[in-house]
């Protein structure tokens, strides 16, 4: 409505560019749905249960976490708590996106469902409100469709596979968590948090029910977050964003890198957007895959 009336032509071009970025991000991210579907079935979920997670939970990191804890024989409560803690960042994305996209009425709950790393990153990367809205809806809906179709493909394949260990599916889950973690390790505080978390999780594993050591490891975040020295390091972490984004871009492939470049450029003008932390996570399926 009020979208850059001064440059209608530029605005339309920006919207087309946003759609193109969104579609390439959706395809790249959706592919990871295959690994989620296969891992969910290997962890003992039915095809329907895997599909419901992709339809309603729709945030990759949490989905992998829930399935990982269940597959390790953990308690349901620990699985839900891990998924919810990982999904907490979507709340912050939704807070940022609401006013930015002007969501009202039925678009608000639908937009909430589609709020993930990828849709947030594509939206924040766009230069004007119309392009931001196009980027968000095309990326969100595109990832939802691809992710769900390929979850079904993965679940059917996993069902036909037989012994998951012979296919290395337990190792595939570990590799998935490493892939989700990797683009978030640019800053010193993040590295310290990850190291501390690994030590806590391993040290606690022989003593506690599966699933609980991971929740205990989340305390590492509080320890590092409240350490005054590390807090100052946080500024450094923000400075690292562009480099971080580039790396993540390459990790996903040529398509999404357009979105990423745009985003890195805008992070500077829009401190608020950069602050949301979305850029860092942008390209990751989980999130998709931390989706």
């Amino acid at each position: 409505m009020t979208d850059s009336p001064a440059r209608p032509q530029g605005g339309r071009t920006a919207v087309r560019a946003a759609r193109r970025q969104a579609v390439s991000v959706a395809v790249a991210t959706g592919l990871s749905g295959i690994s989620f579907g296969a891992l969910a079935v290997a962890a003992g979920l039915s095809i329907w249960q895997a599909q419901l997670l992709s339809m309603l939970m729709f945030t990759g990191g949490s989905q992998f976490a829930l399935v990982g804890v269940l597959g390790a024989g953990g308690l349901g409560g620990a699985a839900v708590a891990s998924a919810a803690l990982l999904g907490g960042r979507n709340l912050l994305y939704a807070v940022q996106l609401g006013p930015l996209l002007g969501l009202r009425g039925w678009r608000r709950p639908l937009g909430a469902l589609l709020t993930i790393d990828e849709s947030t990153a594509v939206a924040l990367a766009q230069p004007d409100p119309a392009a931001r809205r196009a980027g968000f809806w095309w990326a969100g809906a595109g990832v939802w469709v691809c992710w769900n179709v390929l979850t079904l493909v993965g679940a059917l394949a996993g069902d036909a596979m037989g012994d998951p260990k012979a296919w290395g599916l337990d190792a595939a889950a570990a590799a998935a968590f490493l892939g989700l973690l990797w683009p978030r390790l640019a800053s010193r505080p993040a590295q310290a948090t990850a190291g501390l978390s690994v030590v806590i999780a391993l040290a606690a594993s022989p003593w506690l029910t599966p699933g609980v050591p991971v929740l205990l490891a989340a305390l590492a975040a509080l320890a590092v977050g409240w350490w005054p020295r590390a807090a100052r390091g946080g500024d450094g972490a923000d400075a690292d964003h562009p480099a971080d984004a580039d790396q993540a871009a390459d990790a996903v492939g040529p398509g999404p890198s357009d979105a990423r470049d745009g985003r890195a450029g805008h992070a500077g003008d829009n401190a608020d957007a950069a602050e949301a932390g979305a850029p860092r996570a942008a390209d990751r399926p989980g999130e998709a895959a931390a989706r």
Binding site: G61, L85, P189, S197, A201, A218, A221, V224
Partner: peptide, 16 residues
């Protein structure tokens, strides 16, 4: 929230 995400993913990686 960013650090909680990192801590959980690292913990899941270690245990998995």
């Amino acid at each position: 929230m960013g650090l909680v995400t990192v801590a959980l993913l690292a913990g899941l990686l270690a245990v998995q």
